[in-house]
Computed example of a mutant assay.
Amino acid sequence: MTARFLITAALGFMASFAAVPALADALDEIVSRNTIRVAVPTDYPPFGSVGPDMQPRGMDIDVARLIAEKLGVQVELVPVTAPNRVAFLQTGKTDLTISSLGKTEERSKAIDFSIAYSPFFDAVFGAKEPPVEDYSDLDGKVIAVTRGSMQDQELQELAPGAVVQRFEDNASTIAAFMSGQSEMFASGTPVAAAINEQNPDLDMELKIILANAPCYVGVAKGETRLLEKVNEIIRAAKASGELDRLSNEWLGAPAGDLPE
């Protein structure tokens, strides 16, 4: 009698657990609320800034909208700064972080990363003429650069024949180019984009790429289904040429062969 009672009670206890539905993950919640919350920059062109119409625009903004469109949900753009873009994801304030985020060992302990969606170029910029096809075309050209920067090191390695003018800060480097003191300057694409935005009539283009440190979508730890879905969307955009189109529009060069 006692044994029969214990068995019946145990079966009832197990059945009560079976009746409890599995906890919804981030992807389920996004679909259920019909909105995906994405942390984006609004102070870092060309990845994210506020346009003349007071609407956010940029590479990261368009990728956030692309992912929302492919998921069939609305997008809620959540402005963040570099220091809080990971924290917003960790504390559940956003579902994704798309904010020119590079993948590092330290960050990988806190969040997961998608495959790369965008290049992040260090490059040489200058007037449209003369053309630059190869690093050897920089021989004898006067190029301004910030002393000790990554671009300074890259110029030394890739264009040893260039005449490099070194300045103590980015503002002085840009001023040298704007005043005609140098023919070209080396910087990251966000710096050049900000110059273009402030001086739309300036005769300037990306001459040659020095380095590429790709950007990744940040996803909260353990959200495997959401991560897989984001990767699926990025791969499809790579295959269709959509990422190349967006990169050309915002960064001045195709996305190219981005790492998985």
Rank of each mutant, 00 (worst) to 15 (best):
F47V: 01
A239V: 09
A18E: 08
T97L: 00
D53E: 12
A237S: 15
I234R: 08
G51V: 02
W250F: 15
K109I: 03
Q165G: 04
V230D: 07
A186Q: 05
Q151W: 00
N84T: 13
A15R: 05
D53V: 10
I143S: 07
A82D: 12
I208M: 02
M1K: 14
G58L: 05
A127K: 15
E183C: 03
F13P: 01
L23W: 11
S108C: 02
G140K: 00
S99W: 03
A110F: 04
R225G: 08
A19L: 13
A22G: 04
V40Q: 04
I233R: 08
P200F: 02
A193Y: 03
Q156H: 10
P130I: 01
S240R: 09
V86N: 08
A162N: 02
L11T: 13
I208S: 03
Q74S: 12
F88M: 14
A116N: 07
A18S: 12
S100M: 10
L11N: 06
V217A: 11
V191A: 09
D112M: 08
G252N: 10
I98C: 03
N248V: 13
I61H: 12
I115L: 13
T94D: 04
L206C: 06
L89I: 10
K238R: 15
V80D: 10
V31Y: 08
D25Q: 13
D95R: 01
E106Y: 11
P131E: 08
F120P: 05
P41T: 03
N248K: 13
A26T: 13
L246G: 12
I143F: 06
Y44V: 00
Q198N: 15
R65I: 00
A110T: 14
A24H: 01
G256Q: 13
K109M: 06
R166Q: 05
Y44I: 00
Q198P: 01
A127L: 07
K229I: 02
